[in-house]
């Protein structure tokens, strides 16, 4: 199996709030640290990834934020412009004043066209080899399925036209498991795991991209081994004698309880993933999504990443 960082296109998928941007940025850092020219693409253009690296207002042009690591924000309008310039080869059209309106038309009304422009840009970058590794931080679950699945969907709707002709080479890149892969990001709560299992099966059945593995983020690990657990019981009895230890032991009990629940849910996810690897990232309670956090996540992922 091709290791994660050896792929050209890595799609970091998962529902909102699980820390996709942080994981995508961390994978990007690992890619750059391994000497690959790496690009992190924020597909919903909200600026979260740029903000992690202290850069605001990064646009469609990649900006180098660390050595070998660039970030760009997807902008479908700019993508359309580039597309017209490269493929329609009519420079006049891309400079036409009504382009914004056409873009509105294309993206709002025509199903799949916006998605194609996003995926098309990603595949184009992969094809042009400007970067060794492109890590994509896509919008939340539902949309990523439409985006990745669009190469086959659009074929059904659009019988002719340029976009139809474009989908086959994209499909080739996306379906090649040595070039493209999807990473599932989840949190270790029961419902989140259930949803991830569902998302995993949708990636498998509705998109051409192969699922490579999962990252469970925000895991509370049990810091107490068996011996320490027994010792905690002893502390409890000592506490009984001294009184007042209640809140401290209570915190430990609660924490260990949550850790046990997380371990169980991770096992469920692992069972659903079968042979595929499941990496974990520890909960860093209350951390801001900043570079320190990303570096910490990258460090812990480095060991477990496939």
């Amino acid at each position: 199996m091709t290791s994660l960082l050896e792929h050209q296109l890595v799609f970091v998928t998962g529902k909102g709030g699980v820390g996709k941007s942080t994981v995508a940025a961390a994978i990007g850092c690992l890619g750059a640290a391994s000497g690959r020219r790496t690009l992190v693409v924020e597909a919903d253009g909200k600026g979260d990834v740029g903000a992690i690296f202290g850069r605001h207002g990064i646009g469609f042009e990649p900006v180098e934020v660390l050595p070998s690591l660039s970030v760009m924000e997807m902008d479908t309008e700019a993508s359309l412009e580039e597309y017209l310039r490269i493929f329609v080869k009519v420079p006049m059209l891309s400079k036409m004043p009504g382009l914004a309106r056409i873009f509105d038309f294309v993206s709002t009304a025509a199903p799949g066209v916006k998605e194609i422009l996003v995926v098309g840009k990603l595949c184009y970058e992969a094809k042009e080899n400007h970067f060794d590794l492109i890590v994509v931080d896509p919008p939340a679950s539902g949309h990523v399925i439409s985006q990745l699945g669009v190469t086959s969907d659009v074929g059904d709707l659009i019988q002719l036209g340029m976009i139809r002709n474009q989908t086959s080479w994209m499909l080739e890149i996306l379906a090649d498991q040595d070039r493209s892969t999807a990473v599932l990001v989840a949190t270790p709560d029961e419902t989140a795991v259930e949803e991830s299992v569902e998302l995993a099966s949708r990636i498998r059945s509705e998109t051409p991209v192969h699922l490579g593995g999962a990252v469970v983020n925000r895991v509370i690990h049990n810091p107490l081994g068996e011996l320490e657990q027994a010792e905690l019981e002893r502390i409890r009895s000592v506490a009984g004698a001294a009184g007042q230890l209640g809140p401290v032991v209570e915190a430990a009990d609660l924490y260990v309880g949550i850790a046990t629940r997380h371990a169980g849910n991770i096992a469920t996810l692992q069972a659903a993933m079968g042979e595929l690897p499941v990496a974990t990232v520890a909960e860093l309670l209350g951390s801001e999504a900043n570079l320190d956090l990303v570096m910490e996540v990258a460090e812990s992922l480095e060991v477990e990443l496939w």
Binding site: L84, V106, V113, Q159, G161, M162, I163
Partner: peptide, 11 residues
């Protein structure tokens, strides 16, 4: 013209 070029006339 542009819309047609991109998506095809039928669509």
């Amino acid at each position: 013209l542009v819309a047609e070029a991109i998506m095809g006339g039928a669509f």
